[in-house]
Design a protein around this nucleic acid. Structure first.
Length: 421
RNA sequence: GUGGGUGUGGCGAAGCUGGUUAACGCACCGGAUUGUGGCUCCGGCAUUCGUGGGUUCAAGUCCCAUCACUCACCCCA
């Protein structure tokens, strides 16, 4: 073989494709029910969009982007996430001129240069939604509700919604200072990466997995403590809305999302059983992003769901009940003289709406029946030279093994009555 | 970027301390009186053990390198 697929990518083969279609169909259906419209943006963008939109200090930008110069010396990046492109498209196409808020969803591939592992790929697919133009806490709750609804309809169990507020730029700044002050006291004890994080992004120390850092950060001031009254109020409202519709959540003061643009509500939905990569949905509010990308200061909120991970859980929880689509009829020509009729008949019956397979390999009748059997067809039309000379074919019912000779002209009508659909 | 595991036919795999012809199962193809499936039986299907190099009289089995897959860390979906 000349080469293989690039690391971290997947071929989705027949048998698997149907599962994707099912997921995508459900995502579209539910989005529309919640009033979202689909948007499709390019899978590559100018690199600067992500530098600014996602944030220079994030892992995505620092080490995971697929960036290259195209032949026109443009700096291009394969999109690592869907929010920044959606915001860009919203501004570029002046969707803000429409009645607000704007509710959009997307389904498509994203690209990040990571080391692949269970549930993590270099090309992966996300179903995401975005709401631009409303501060209302019920929107936060509705976004979370949509994700939960999606999972519920798939039949997923044992999900955990983790919820936090990361505050507004004001209290976040204050919080940052408090954290720096707190951690500086024990700076030398922190792990290497966290020592680097201390001044750049102290929030991230909170969700460091190193036992030492966790121990130290145990008593660190939380986002919640330092949130300003407005942020507190917003967070309380969001929780209240969630309560009214019965969505259970865990408050997680150390939930800090890896992208810079988040403000206020941040959430993640986690599942057990698919390995270390247990986050199947992540999202939150990003009230500064639209302005950052060059628009008016408009609030926004959204989530992204990792489709591959959903597929892993569905498989693990055995939640697929897709049935194969088999052909109705198999056409078995015997000998050269019957080929033309077999060909014509196949096309004709397909035009009538039947699913038709035939032999393409000049195989023995025995071999043809064997493969018809594997296709699990209901009928085989055997075209023999003897019968052909009489204008007849043999119709074999594969279930009962009963065979009847039938005139070619009557075949269609006969099958019509016997194959429902 | 770091660490662990793995790499034998289309797939699942045996192959111990290196020693003539690389098991077995599934799948696939063909056959069992000439034009008939699903069961059974018989036969066929890897000059070759990810790749390259080395040690040796001799390597799938040892050593080195390299690539790939995989799991985990970092982080995320």
């Amino acid at each position: 073989m000349l080469t293989t697929r690039p690391r971290g990518t997947n071929d989705i083969l027949p048998g698997q494709v149907e599962k994707w279609q099912y997921l995508e169909e459900l995502a579209r259906k539910i989005s529309e029910q919640y009033g979202f419209k689909e948007i499709r943006t390019p899978i590559f963008e100018h690199t600067e969009l992500f530098l600014r939109g996602v944030g220079e200090a994030t892992d995505i930008v620092e080490k995971e982007m697929y960036s290259f110069f195209d032949r026109g010396e443009r700096n291009i990046t394969l999109r690592p996430e869907g929010t920044a492109p959606t915001v860009r498209a919203f501004l570029e196409n002046k969707l803000y001129a429409n009645p607000q808020p704007t509710k959009l969803f997307y389904i498509g591939p994203m690209f990040r240069y990571d080391r692949p592992q269970a549930g993590r790929y270099r090309q992966f697919n996300q179903f995401g939604i975005e709401v631009f133009g409303s501060h209302h806490p019920s929107v936060d709750a509705e976004v979370i509700a949509l994700a939960c609804d999606f999972f519920a309809r798939l039949g997923l169990r044992d999900l955990e919604v983790h919820l936090n507020t990361v505050g507004c730029p004001d209290c976040r700044g204050k919080h940052k200072e408090e954290l720096i002050a707190y951690f500086q006291k024990r700076e030398h004890e922190l792990c290497e990466t966290c020592q680097k994080r201390l001044h750049k992004n102290p929030l991230r120390i909170l969700d460091c997995k190193s036992p030492v850092c966790q121990e130290i950060s145990k008593n660190a001031p939380t986002t919640k403590d330092s949130a300003c009254p407005e942020c507190q109020a917003h967070f309380a409202d969001v929780k209240e809305y969630l309560d009214t519709i019965g969505i259970k959540y865990t408050e997680d003061p150390r939930l800090v999302r890896g992208l810079d643009y988040y403000t206020h509500t941040a959430f993640e939905i986690l599942v057990k059983g698919i390995g270390a990569q247990s986050a199947i949905c992540g999202g939150g509010r990003y009230n500064g992003l639209i302005e950052e990308v060059g628009g008016q200061p408009l609030p926004g909120i959204g989530f992204a769901i990792g489709m591959e991970r959903i597929l892993l859980i569905l498989e693990q929880q055995k939640l697929f009940s897709l049935q194969e689509s088999n052909p109705d009829i198999y056409i078995a020509p015997l000998g050269n003289k019957t080929q033309a009729l077999a060909f014509e008949l196949a096309i004709k019956l397909r035009k009538k709406g039947f699913k038709v397979e035939k032999d393409y390999l000049d195989r023995s009748l025995k071999a043809q029946l064997k493969s018809a059997d594997r296709f699990q067809v209901k009928f085989v039309v055997i075209i023999g030279e003897e019968e052909l000379s009489k204008g007849q074919v043999i119709l074999r019912d594969m279930k009962t093994s009963a065979q009847t000779e039938i005139s070619i002209n009557n075949l269609e009508a006969y099958l019509e009555g016997r194959i429902e659909e």
